[in-house]
Amino acid sequence: MDLEVMKEYMPLYREAFFLTMKIGWIGILGAVIIGFAAAVVRLLKIPVLHRILGAYIELFRNTPLLVQLFFLYFGLPKLGLSISAPFCGALGLMLLGGAYMAETFRSGFEAIPVLQTETARALGMSKFQTTVHVLLPEALSVSMPGFTANMIFLLKETSVFSAISLMDLMFTAKDLIGLYFRTVECLTLLVVFYLFLLLPVSILGSIVERRVRYAEFGA
């Protein structure tokens, strides 16, 4: 392994790292918003919308991200709607992640017994107060591990972005290998940068998880 070569490639990887991170986090943020909204709609069983979102969740959970990206990137322009590659990547991640997050949040909501909310109501709390002070915190603490797992999963899924010619980490590694055949160096750097991207999320996730869940589940 040639460290000099690796040093030389570093700037390219760094650039790809920031691109991956940017698109990844925008995608995750969108996924959380979509997922939460979808979970609430499904929980309240809002007519029509509830069915549409159900179909959305099944569609995106049961097709690969790569296929979804191809559809967005190559399919939509055929329908007269072309979007840039970075936007396409973020959108794909949002839609896929939204479906996963929706299910994670829903399972959290459903884990809270009806009697908990009834108790809050029996104490005179309004629907809104019950939701904010009882239902949400309890549901989120149940959802927390699934939520962290989803984030890690989504960040890893960014590795298919190269298929829509986004210069992410995977793309950069493949490109460099193709050009200079420094396979070992390129792949090592790839692993290191993915760890940079994901380890903080794992570590931070478990710290937050422990804090959020301490009250209910202990250390």
Partner: peptide
């Protein structure tokens, strides 16, 4: 009202 299974809020 007091319930059979206490129904304390576990996060508090």
């Amino acid at each position: 009202m007091v319930f059979q299974n206490y129904e304390l809020f576990p996060h508090k």
